[in-house]
């Protein structure tokens, strides 16, 4: 309560923001937006769409996401939304690779194409992939 502390009872503990976060890691992020970047929303949108379309089941998605999160936890990744959505992306790539004709190689190739498109497009111009 900045600016409204008034007189505190003797022995009151004043916590800095970082101390508050350390002591209350969950409450500290309450109220944060569900997505920090557009790609995070896209990952969930694609996953849910593929479940609805029947490429894989909700249970398969849960298992793959759970496995990726477990791996991140074992690797002591930071417990934040960035890590969560990276795990979601990893799970999505795994499920797409095992349930469609899209393989890891084509994912890597298309990723490279997008990088090139961004690097070769001047600022302010729409970024499009070259059509073959």
């Amino acid at each position: 309560m900045p600016g409204s502390m008034g007189k505190l009872p003797e022995g009151s503990l004043i916590l800095s923001e970082s101390e508050e976060t350390a002591l209350k890691p969950l409450a500290a992020v309450d109220g944060q937006p569900a997505f920090e970047e557009a790609w995070q929303a896209e990952v969930l949108a694609i996953a849910d769409t593929l479940v609805r379309n029947g490429m894989f089941s909700a249970g398969a998605w849960s298992d793959a996401l759970g496995a990726a999160l477990e791996e991140a936890a074992v690797g002591e990744a930071i417990d934040n939304q960035e890590t969560y959505y990276r795990c979601a992306l990893q799970a999505l790539e795994t499920l797409v690779a095992s349930n469609s004709e899209i393989d890891r190689q084509s994912m890597a190739g298309k990723r490279k194409d997008w990088e090139q498109a961004y690097l070769s497009t001047p600022h302010g111009q729409p970024v499009n992939l070259k059509t073959e």
Binding site: V43, I46, R111, Y118
Partner: peptide, 21 residues
């Protein structure tokens, strides 16, 4: 874009090209 954002773009492009989304 970030590495993750590029990977999502790649995945979405491939899925759209295949008519899967």
């Amino acid at each position: 874009p970030s590495e993750s954002a590029l990977r999502v773009k790649a995945l979405e492009t491939l899925l759209v090209d295949k008519g899967l989304v």
